[in-house]
Design a protein around this nucleic acid. Structure first.
Length: 288
DNA sequence: ACACTTATATATCGTAGCAC
DNA sequence: GTGCTACGATATATAAGTGT
């Protein structure tokens, strides 16, 4: 439960920010959320979601710090914007070996996060629930699914040999060794926004696992609901560096085709993905 | 508030292999 | 042979302190 002075919490943030001209927001994504009338509570759901799936809390002595980690700079911008809107603080971002850390120093934020997700203690075996997201309406859930997929999710495309050629095999997933509680909440969230995942256990870590699917309907639906947040990239493997959404779209289109070799399949997917990136780019131009 | 350090838990993927 | 599920490697991105 996110506890707030009741009235203020439900006033859409845009009333405040339209007046303020939305100055100081760097991320188009957060601007858009504000424009769409997301309330403070809803933005907190997304903010805490980001922290739980890709950050940490630290409080010791007189220090209160919430951090966010990851290689996608856009996500740090979003984290920083949300922190600004919610706590009127400007977290700093520092680069560490090709990745980034963004640090928010706010006693208030730490208190509220601990309240919303008391089980969140990543390296002490905590099993954070996502109830603070599941309590929200459908709009937040859709956005939360995108945010979580962007911080902890992955898209990959591998290949299998068949007698009549090579077939592409796309897979969409989230997590790797998430605790079962978190995993089930995650799965619930996804199914509530129409995405069907299977739960897989990682036998090496008892009770931990991930969600994954190669169901084309789910891949397409996820894409139609906005997919990964724009600007997030594939981090490893054959398609490292590629925009996640481009690979998603390319893999969906390649899934029903046959190729003469793995190399040909990879090349074709690169081509399709470049097309997608062009489309995204043109779209952005047209939207201004 | 920012920057540095460090160990290791783990994120991310490739592929083997099952059932049908 | 297709469509899944499970397994496992491994490079390193995190997570959490600490120093200033």
């Amino acid at each position: 439960m996110i506890v707030q002075p009741p009235l203020l919490a439900l006033i859409p943030v845009n009333y405040i920010f339209i007046l303020a001209g939305m100055t100081g927001l760097a991320s188009p994504y957060v601007k858009d959320l504000v424009r769409r009338g997301f309330s403070t509570v809803d933005l907190k759901r997304l903010f805490f979601g980001m922290v739980v799936s890709g950050g940490s809390v630290y409080s010791g002595g007189k220090k209160y710090c919430i951090r966010f980690y990851g290689k996608d700079l856009v996500l740090h911008t979003i984290f920083a914007d949300l922190a600004y809107v919610l706590y009127n603080a400007r977290p700093g971002t520092t680069g560490v070996r090709g990745s980034y850390v963004t640090q928010l120093y706010s006693r208030e934020a730490v208190r509220e996060l601990r309240e919303a997700s008391p089980e969140f203690e990543t390296r002490r075996g905590g099993e954070p629930s996502l109830s603070f997201i599941l309590e929200g309406g459908i709009d937040v859930k859709v956005e939360a699914s995108r945010v979580l997929m962007s911080t902890g999710g992955w898209i990959s495309c591998s290949f299998v040999n068949t007698t009549c050629g090579v077939r592409a095999y796309p897979r969409l997933g989230i997590g790797s060794v998430l605790p079962s509680n978190t995993l089930l909440d995650c799965s619930k969230l996804m199914s509530e926004v129409g995405l069907r995942f299977s739960v897989y256990q990682d036998k090496r870590y008892d009770g931990r696992g991930y969600l994954a699917t190669s169901d084309l309907m789910t891949l397409k639906r996820f894409g139609n609901q906005g997919g990964f947040l724009e600007g997030t990239a594939v981090k490893r493997g054959e398609f490292a560096g590629m925009e996640k959404n481009s690979l998603l779209a390319a893999a969906v289109r390649a899934a029903s085709r046959k190729f003469s070799s793995k190399e040909e399949a990879i090349e074709k997917i690169r081509e399709l993905a470049t097309d997608e990136e062009l489309k995204i780019y043109l779209n952005r131009l047209m939207l201004g």
